[in-house]
Design a protein around this nucleic acid. Structure first.
Length: 508
RNA sequence: GGCGAUUUAGUGUAGUGGCCUAGCACGCCGCCCUCUCACGGCGGAAACCCGGGUUCGAGUCCCGGAUUCGCUACCA
């Protein structure tokens, strides 16, 4: 019996969405779209202590920017709501009671201090079948005492009663069958009376079941608790509709060890967040891919290939192509080190595909940031300037470095090039060159080049020296597009002014 | 420590017993193009974790070890 594919991305609003989380969301989305299923966004805000204002809005904005569409969620609505766990208290309470009633869970009064003491006394202390008999819980205390404590408002938690000695099998779509013995699992806290909220484990299972989730696609860090989840499905009597589990390999730090964390980004010089994030508490700013000049398509493409491949050598794929080809058969199992250099290359590729006019629009804010008013130039001029240098950029921002001379005359000249290419007869030759250019009927690059090269040879000048001195005068250094393309775009007067200024300033 | 996962060049990966003298991409190096820097084209260096098996034949299967990562909270 094939169930309708329904997947969920379930972040907790404890901060900005991390790039690893983005990839998890992406894989969920790709899988859902691939199979004509539904993509649910569920906000898991059961940790009242760690709630961060603005985080939920950030998640929505980030997913929207990347083009990861949501079918059901807090904003989108849907038939399985509410989609925010803090609004589902009644549901959880009811389900906790079910477990309590059928003896699958029990009430525990041990305080955090008592638990700490137990852990201190016993090196490998675990709250389970071997120890629960010595703790303060509804299994060891008389029923009327338990009732009295609760009526007194004593804080308690509900723990899952794990039967030891059983091999629990988790069937993972990427890793195959993973078996863990229930004896190594502890009696997980399912619910805390202190804030009347469930923990992740309970809320997760209840919601996935009620929302008819067919595939749980999440990070590998959840693999160890997957057996617990299997047991929970059984305890509720939902084993036959239990979702398929898929545990994705983690995104690792590019240098040493461990999974990519929030701190790594700015430490290593690349963003770990899709969007820039301003921490409301510390005021700290973390950089984001969007602000850094990444195209969302590039980020998506890059992320998709970190842990998955289409089965052949294809690398550049649109969202639709990713959807068409996505499958867990081609997911890798080991964690992937985050390779920022490759990410740059993807952005470079996508930038090349962008129409020049669009790129020019993206460039305008960068111009402004550097004190140049785009309105001082025609759109056509900016577009053509951008088109000339775009092949050498990885980011929109890089456009400034490569095209600035089109907008601002050089103030100084690269010393090395001046030394190499500028001699005392350079001013005269350059003036001769300008006269020659001026006499030309058109500055069309092909013709101009032909004429000038012919002239250089005729006069016996050194091609490299003349052209590079010319370049230094106009650009400021020895780099950039072909000189005659530059000349045509800038026009004779602007070029001539720069040549005169250079002659004045360099004075060999 | 316990439990689980994991393991192909620096990085991401292809590879499902012979087509592997291991392919692709990023990065790196060189050459070409050339007025410069890039782009592009061409080429190069660079990997099957180790040890045992099974087999005519193993990167691919089995066993052991090691590695790395994750989990081990009234966080997710």
């Amino acid at each position: 019996m094939e169930r309708k594919v329904r997947v969920r991305f379930a972040p907790s609003p404890t901060g900005p969405l991390h790039i690893g989380g983005v990839r998890t969301a992406l894989y969920n989305y790709l899988f859902a779209r691939r199979h004509g299923g539904d993509m649910i966004l569920r906000i898991e805000d059961t940790d009242s202590q760690r709630f961060v204002p603005g985080a939920e809005a950030y998640i929505n904005e980030a997913l929207a920017w990347l083009g990861i569409g949501i079918d059901e969620g807090v904003k989108e609505g849907g038939a399985y709501g509410p989609y925010k766990q803090s609004e589902r208290r009644d549901i959880y309470r009811e389900h906790v009671k079910m477990l309590l009633d059928n003896g699958k869970a029990y009430i525990a009064f041990d305080t955090p201090e008592e638990l700490e003491a137990a852990r201190a006394a016993q090196p490998n202390f675990q709250y389970d079948a071997s120890t629960r008999g010595n703790m303060r819980n509804s299994l060891t205390m008389p029923a009327d005492e338990v009732k009295r404590l609760i009526d007194n408002g004593e804080k308690y938690v509900v723990r899952f009663k794990i039967e030891p000695g059983r091999d629990v099998v988790v069937n993972d779509l990427i890793r195959g069958k993973v078996t863990i013995n229930s004896s190594v699992l502890d009696d997980k806290v399912l619910y805390k009376s202190a804030d009347d909220l469930p923990t992740y484990h309970l809320a997760n299972i209840v919601d996935d079941h009620l929302m008819e989730v067919s595939h749980v696609i999440r990070g590998e860090e959840w693999l160890p608790s997957a057996p617990l989840h299997v047991l929970l499905y059984e305890a509720f009597g939902w084993a036959d509709t239990m979702p398929q589990f898929v545990h994705l390999p983690l995104l690792l730090k590019p240098d040493g060890k461990g999974k990519l964390s929030k701190r790594d980004g700015d430490r290593l010089g690349f963003p770990v967040f899709p969007l820039e994030w301003h921490d409301p508490k510390s005021g700290e700013i973390s950089s984001g891919y969007r602000e850094r000049g990444y195209l969302p398509e590039a980020v998506v493409n890059f992320l998709a290939l970190l842990g998955w491949n289409p089965g052949d050598d294809t690398e550049i794929m649109s969202m639709q192509e990713l959807i068409d080809r996505f499958s867990f058969d081609h997911c890798s199992r080991a964690g992937a080190k985050f390779d920022f250099e490759k990410g740059k290359w993807f952005n470079h590729k996508y930038l090349q595909e962008l129409p020049d006019a669009e790129l020019a629009e993206l460039f305008k804010p960068v111009m402004k940031a550097h004190g140049v008013n785009p309105d001082d130039f025609s759109d056509d001029y900016i577009i053509r300037a951008v088109a000339m240098v775009k092949s050498r950029i990885n980011f929109v921002e890089d456009l400034w470095e490569h095209a600035r001379f089109f907008f601002v005359a050089p103030e100084e000249y690269e010393a090395k090039s001046v030394k190499k290419r500028w001699s005392e007869d350079t001013p005269a030759i350059l003036r001769e060159l300008m006269a020659r250019l001026k006499a030309l009927p058109s500055l069309e690059p092909k013709g101009a080049e032909e004429d000038i090269i012919g002239w250089i040879q005729e006069r016996g000048y050194h091609m490299g020296n003349v052209m590079n001195a010319f370049r230094v005068a106009v650009v400021g250094e020895c780099k950039g597009p072909h000189m005659f393309d530059i000349v045509e775009l800038m026009g004779f007067d602007a070029v001539n002014d720069r040549v005169e200024a250079a002659i004045e300033r360099i004075k060999a």
